[in-house]
Design a protein around this nucleic acid. Structure first.
Lengths: 204, 204
DNA sequence: ATGAAAAAATGCAGAGAATGCAAAATCTTT
DNA sequence: AAAGATTTTGCATTCTCTGCATTTTTTCAT
């Protein structure tokens, strides 16, 4: 990886981090593009070379996560049912939520203050949803190529998986991270696999 | 309902409709607040009295829908399992998706052109999610009052229900509305109730 | 009806977001 | 080191959004 590429990544990361730190300190609405740019040592114009909007700086995440999950879903043993395959793919990816949980918490704090950013954040994940649905469809039907328009079931499973991630993080975070994150994630998929029946009083 | 309230509704509706129509004609990015306001016969400043942002005009929907769904969930016969209770509440509310499907399609067309608006649209629904989760929690535990912070299961069920609505509409709309919407909706809940197992080849 | 109170609409001024374009600075390749 | 490609930057401009003071409209009590 050449110097140019490294610099680009560094710049983007510096902008994103500056945005989150400034927001955590002064409140989201009191952070201007100018301030973010200054903290990252670039011109305001450069900010917009990296992000389409101010809000994107708080929200945009690693684009490769989606790719890895899709590949994991396709690579899982054929004997696994789809829900479990998706479950494991996400679990592997989320294993280090706790390790980097300082950064996550900082960002979560910011998003909590600004619901519209939370919305955007979900949207970022949503982009991957269609790709995941395609991967699921191909897994169900290994002979044919990946369909451009997945059927109802693959779409539903992909969407529900994304929802599961979100709810797990929200619930885990709301509880103050007092239990292992993956434990929450397991409970969620247990509910889903059972068809969402009313749980016993001690499991709500 | 007094004159004031009626006028407010009319103004809001006029702004929202003007926004969607102008966007459908000229493209989302070529519609300014000024143009929307002019089409709705109010001042640009008034626009911002009704919507927090330009984009909200394309996205915001009837705020009472959420209330009706919550009430329906609470009023459903206690013998119904939670998933079914939620299912029925939404189904009743969505019964006229097809009747008003001209407006929906117009809006859907606009949102398709502008992914970031799609994201916002989802967010609008998301706001209701917490309220629904509370209602579900109370339904599960009729004795106690509605909890401020619902547990994992109510949150999950509320979120999954919202996802089910979205996927149903997307899939139905992508298929050109060639089948009854509620039929799609039923299939989705059948998948969910079964725990999302791999469906037979003819049901994907 | 009518006048006082409440709510909504408006105009205006101004900060900030976002984009296009051309010039300058920086990195890559040979 | 020089040519070429890419990135950064400054500048001008349009549009979004907010606060505040003023005017208009609706409501309510008399």
């Amino acid at each position: 990886m050449g110097l140019r590429e490294r610099k680009k990544r560094a710049t983007r990361a510096a902008l994103a981090e500056a945005a989150v730190r400034l927001a955590a300190e002064h409140g989201v609405d009191n952070v201007t593009v100018e301030a973010i740019s200054e903290a990252a040592d670039v011109s305001p114009r450069t900010f917009f070379n990296y992000f389409d909007s101010r809000d994107d700086a708080f929200v945009t995440i690693d684009a490769e996560v989606g790719t890895r999950i899709r590949e994991a879903v396709l690579a899982a043993p054929p004997s696994l049912d789809p829900l479990t395959a998706v479950h494991r793919a996400f679990a592997d990816e989320l294993a280090d939520v706790e390790r980097r949980h300082e950064v996550w918490n900082l960002r979560a704090e910011v998003l909590k203050q600004a619901p519209h950013l939370m919305v955007r954040s979900l949207g970022a994940h949503l982009e991957d949803e269609l790709g995941l649905a395609r991967a699921i469809a191909q897994r169900l039907d290994p002979g044919s190529p990946e369909p451009e328009r997945p059927g109802l079931y693959p779409r539903l499973l992909a969407a529900v998986a994304g929802t599961a991630v979100r709810i797990s993080i929200e619930h885990w975070s709301a509880g103050g991270a007092t239990v292992p994150f993956l434990a929450v994630f397991e409970r969620v998929f247990t509910h889903l696999a059972a068809g969402l029946p009313a749980p016993p009083p001690d499991d709500r």
